[in-house]
């Protein structure tokens, strides 16, 4: 499968300083890709280069195989984006704002505008001036302008910023639906880590303009981690663990024991417990959260 978005050794120098160091990554159709990093890591700079707002010092950005720097108008047709906050013309109505952007891309009909308005749930306020909108409504309007021309790649900077919990959930479900059902590739940057964990399939962490890691969210649960064993009797279970796996750290709590265990040893320990007649009521993987991973990768000493 050809990647929808491809960054090849992308580098950005401002003056004599290198802001982005040879960044390479790929985003495929149908996935939600998280873009993480502490403030000042270069997330926004990278996004600006992808959408052609900034020049690329060296390397290339390909969207659907088209070079953004060389063939901007053709490449950008596939992209819908919000860069930082969705800033709109406040003295115009939401509808006029959408009309403004619709006129700039060929093939966006009035019907499509109405469709997108309904999609983001702004029907009742769309003819009000944007200055009367709440942050959440502006966010929805931002999403609407990004979707107008049916892009195949959606790039969203902090899409849930300012939304209430119901709104966050709605947008999250909607983005996942767009990726799964319509096959869009979605790049989301955020520093709400738990949010990203629920939304993304894969994520990249960058720090000081360098790529630290790219991982799948599913992989997070396969690394060495805490596993909660709901067992009875607890003391006997702890004994079994100490005998069989003396190097694992054990912690007892009210329900059972928490063991820092390797993913592949979980069935073995289970078998041992059963063999020793310990009642096993449940095995719960306390997955390493993205936040822990993030702090681990970035050294944890940065303001997120």
């Amino acid at each position: 499968m050809n990647p929808l978005l491809q960054l090849k050794n992308v580098r950005k120098d401002i003056g004599s300083k290198t802001i982005i160091h040879d960044l390479s990554l790929e985003v495929f159709a149908g996935e939600v890709f998280g873009f993480l990093g502490p403030n000042g890591a270069g997330k926004t700079t990278t996004i600006r280069m992808i959408v052609g707002l900034m020049d690329i010092t060296s390397g290339e950005v390909l969207i659907n195989g088209i070079d953004v720097a060389k063939n901007f108008e053709k490449a950008i047709r596939y992209v819908g984006a919000i860069v930082e906050n969705p800033e709109m013309y406040k003295f115009l109505t939401g509808y006029q704002n959408l009309l403004h952007y619709a006129r700039m891309t060929s093939g966006v009909t009035k019907d499509r505008i109405d469709e997108v308005i309904k999609l983001v749930g702004l029907e009742h306020r769309i003819h009000d001036k944007v200055k009367t909108y709440s942050l959440g409504m502006r966010q929805r309007l931002g999403l609407a302008q990004a979707l107008l021309h049916r892009p195949s790649l959606l790039i969203l900077d902090e899409p849930t910023n300012g939304l209430d919990p119901a709104g966050i959930r709605e947008i999250r479900d909607y983005l996942r639906k767009l990726a799964r059902e319509e096959g869009l590739g979605i790049v989301v940057s955020s520093h709400l880590l738990s949010e990203m964990e629920m939304m993304c399939d894969r994520f990249a962490i960058i720090q000081h303009g360098k790529l630290v890691t790219i991982e799948a969210v599913q992989e997070l649960s396969k690394q060495a981690q805490k596993v909660l064993w709901i067992v009875d009797p607890i003391e006997k279970a702890a004994q079994v663990v100490q005998e069989r796996f003396p190097h694992y750290h054990i912690q007892q709590n009210g329900q059972g024991i928490e063991v820092d265990i390797d993913y592949h040893d979980i069935p073995k320990l289970n078998a041992a417990l059963v063999a020793e007649h310990v009642q096993v009521y449940g095995i719960q993987v306390l997955a390493k959260s993205l936040e822990e991973r993030f702090l681990e990768m970035t050294g944890g000493n940065e303001i997120v």
């Binding site: 108008e73 969705p86 800033e87």
Partner: peptide
């Protein structure tokens, strides 16, 4: 100053 330049320049228009 409005910040709208970003959304204005990411359209297929040079």
């Amino acid at each position: 100053s409005w910040g709208t330049i970003k959304l204005l320049l990411i359209r297929p228009t040079n």
